[in-house]
Amino acid sequence: MKSWPFWIAGTLVLAVLFHISAILAYPYAVTGVLHSRVVESEGANKMIAGPRASAEARGVVRPSPDLLYAICAYDLTSGPVKFSAPVPDTYWSLSMFAANTDNFFTVNDTQAARDEVEVILVTEDQIVPDPKGIPIVVAPSAKGAALVRTLISSEDKLPALQEAVKAARCATM
């Protein structure tokens, strides 16, 4: 009996398995690399304001040069993390991303009730004893990223907007 048909079929089945594994693993690999890079340079649960995106920016693909960004690599393994940020008078948002790239939470300047936004991020089984009325968001993964975006509405306002972005916080409670 010839064995080559079995070899071809086996190779193809294996190829399909490799294909599916690669597609499923890739988002986790990319966010994992980003997370560990941020943690290595600045640590977890710290909001880091980046410079305005230019051609030198090689951290995250397709950045917008019209926005200011701040990033926090959150890690909920040692407890809930509290975010707070001043809301400037332009487009602004605080968004949260899970390890699989899902954007599971976003709040923007028009939705903010006050000129400061506060959010507590928890895992499914963490309890915040006294949230003091601060909204609680459940993260689908213990590690992920939070991003503050601020539109540079005019060049004159750039310094003030940069100050506002720098004032954003992310810290273990």
Partner: peptide, 13 residues
């Protein structure tokens, strides 16, 4: 998700 990770990481919904 894989394409977002490659071309639009941290893209909003």
């Amino acid at each position: 998700r894989a394409a977002v990770a490659r071309q639009g990481l941290l893209a909003l919904s």
